[in-house]
Design a binder for these strands. Structure first.
Lengths: 195, 195
DNA sequence: AATATAAATGAATGTTCGTTCACTTTTGAG
DNA sequence: CTCAAAAGTGAACGAACATTCATTTATATT
């Protein structure tokens, strides 16, 4: 029997993501996608059950890629400041390298599409839970409710990420959030979480 | 001559927003909208030049409503902690009362549609600039770059807002972010900004 | 009451949508 | 080399799409 062309699969995936990032969910149609990927519309239905299944799989793919990137060289036993820095750096590098993935991710997360998709991330959340409770035990940060912690440690950082991306696409293509600026924010976040 | 039915106009607006919030941009079609608002498709083109113009006007409407709500009883000469609290409280109340507006706002902001729309908010930004520089002058907070300030003072709060909304729609319809929780976050943000 | 004018309409336009199907091509396993 | 089976196709389906237009309806002004 014939084997699936993995190169073709990734071309379809990338074209779909670009199309959604540039034209929105309503701008990505199966026929346009087929044309832009250089395949027959019917071929798309070999890779995906239907349009909705395709969107779900794309999200799952990007989410996994992002989570894996974020946890590179991360270890939940690291001290708090170091561990958060590693993750932030990883995330920033990821959107530096794949801005369209990040935009797709954000677009999807804020759309009703997200309600029709299952959300994984279990392993990731386990990892983070350990990381935080270790830091609390060691007295590096004080114990706060999860939503407060996430808002400070990730909400503020994501805000900086988005500012980064917006600057880069809207006005200043060379714009870059420097390590110094990230460190400054990190210090302030750590200060706010001090026991 | 005949006068425009303002009630009809608002029905159309609300139905359009609900439809987008529940089914996404690709789920809102002019014909479905007309049917759900109880008007002819052609009527929509009296109120809006075309679909894109409609989306832009909806966004402008919601953005203005949100900004006005946020600034109620706010004054840029307030001390920092008080001023930030007033705004946060206002914003939280707004999404309590109009969660669909907030969801529409977020969905729009994260979509490519935003690039085709003009972004106003000039008066608002002026107001905020004064507020922050007053607080710095008075020594209530230290001077930091704008993106750092926004990330901390708004990024973290928005994160809490979104958590709020997500909880409420996904699992626990009675979920409410209490004043105590907001105050806790506020204190931590203020602490991080202390000179 | 008459009239001018904008609001409002329903049916129709041509286009594009997601998806299917009968068919051809390719290729790994025997 | 053979051939079963999956990959891949192009044309076609009805449905839904955004938008238009010739009319009808309502009303503020006179």
């Amino acid at each position: 029997m014939r084997t699936r062309d993995e190169h073709k699969a990734s071309v379809i995936r990338e074209k779909a993501i670009s199309m959604i990032v540039n034209e929105g969910f309503d701008g990505m149609s199966m026929q346009k996608l087929a044309k832009s990927a250089g395949v027959s519309p019917a071929t798309l239905y070999i890779y995906y059950r239907n349009r909705e299944d395709m969107l779900e799989q794309l999200y799952e793919f990007v989410q996994t890629a992002f989570a894996n990137a974020a946890l590179k060289e991360f270890d939940p036993t690291m001290n708090f400041e170091k561990g958060l820095w590693v993750q932030w750096k990883n995330r920033m590098r990821f959107i530096e390298e794949c801005p369209h993935y990040f935009r797709f991710f954000e677009q999807f997360r804020n759309s009703p599409q997200i309600n029709r998709s299952s959300i994984g991330m279990v392993a990731f959340k386990d990892n983070m839970h350990q990381f935080v409770s270790n830091a609390v035990k060691r007295g590096e940060i004080r114990k706060v409710e999860p939503e407060i912690f996430w808002s400070l440690a990730y909400g503020s950082f994501y805000s900086l990420l988005k500012f980064h991306l917006q600057q880069r696409t809207m006005m200043n293509p060379d714009f870059k959030v420097t390590d110094a600026k990230m460190k400054q924010l990190l210090n302030m976040v750590v200060k706010s979480l001090k026991p």
